[in-house]
């Protein structure tokens, strides 16, 4: 079977800097895959390239959504990538500060709804129904993620860990088949990390999702992942199961000095 995400020879140049250098990587359906590497290795840049936020210098990105034919992703605008079924979170939390928690999730529903400007002003019954459904759906997502208690809070007033989870909730609302998480555990305490761990596994098993995550917390990565990709200075240096990665000499070398105690 085709992998649901298939990236070939992805390269990204910023002026003289090669932030990504010929990266080839695939994610299989139902997998939890991890992308790891030291600071500045190019992990976030990788996400930005496949989601259309940056335009990669070279390479191609293909997806095969479950039950649909394989299609090209590069060259699409970010919002279209999301419509195709890739949703992401951000390393530096980017919630909509002027909105409530529920509304943040409803923004995620945006691309699955239809009502336009005339509909909003005249509010025919179809639009009323759609809006009601959106509220219900969004609330259900919040319940799943465990944020229902905060529904009407402003997103900025949430504790840090909850904000990270809200980013995930918002991404889920776009009905993705592949979830891209950029350091979801950053800044969380061990208790919150544990809950996140459970949540990610739950998502894979119950929501029919595949997940690609960037993470620095090695304990989390090793316990969660089916497959790990390691990048360093924009190049992919290893790929394999947690066991293989742990004993890979190249990986140890790349991490030595900054995070060797975790690896």
């Amino acid at each position: 079977m085709e992998p649901i995400l298939n990236v070939k020879n992805l390269t990204m140049n910023f002026g003289g800097l090669k932030a990504l250098d010929d990266i080839t990587l695939a994610v299989e359906k139902g997998q939890i895959a991890a992308l790891i590497g030291p600071n500045g290795a190019g992990k976030t840049t990788f996400f930005n390239c496949i989601t259309g936020i940056y335009e990669p210098t070279e390479g191609n990105v293909k997806i095969t959504p479950p039950g649909k034919p394989t299609q090209k992703l590069q060259g699409l605008k970010t919002n279209l990538v999301t419509e195709k079924g890739l949703a992401r979170t951000f390393q530096n939390i980017r919630l909509f500060e002027g909105m409530t928690v529920l509304e943040n999730v409803m923004i995620g529903r945006h691309c699955r709804l239809k009502s336009g400007i005339i509909g909003a002003m005249l509010k025919p019954s179809s639009q009323k129904k759609e809006e009601k459904q959106a509220v219900v759906d969004s609330y259900e997502i919040l319940e799943k993620i465990g944020l229902a208690q905060y529904v009407n809070e402003m997103a900025v007033n949430l504790p840090y860990g909850a904000q990270r989870r809200l980013e995930i909730a918002r991404a889920l609302a776009t009905e993705p088949f592949l979830l891209l998480l950029d350091e979801p555990a950053a800044g969380m305490n061990p208790q919150e990390t544990k809950e996140l761990d459970d949540l990610i596994i739950w998502l894979r098993d119950n929501e029919d999702l595949s997940i690609l995550l960037i993470e620095h917390d090695m304990k989390l990565v090793m316990s969660l992942s089916d497959n790990i990709h390691v990048v360093d200075y924009g190049r992919k240096i290893a790929e394999g199961t947690p066991e293989e990665i742990k004993s890979n000499p190249d990986v140890i070398k790349a991490y030595l000095g900054d995070e060797s105690e975790d690896a």
């Binding site: 605008k77 919002n79 419509e83 980017r94 923004i107 776009t174």
Partner: peptide, 12 residues
């Protein structure tokens, strides 16, 4: 509030 996040949520 945030243009980039907005696009990543599928908004044109």
């Amino acid at each position: 509030d945030d243009e980039i996040a907005c696009e990543a949520m599928g908004i044109d």
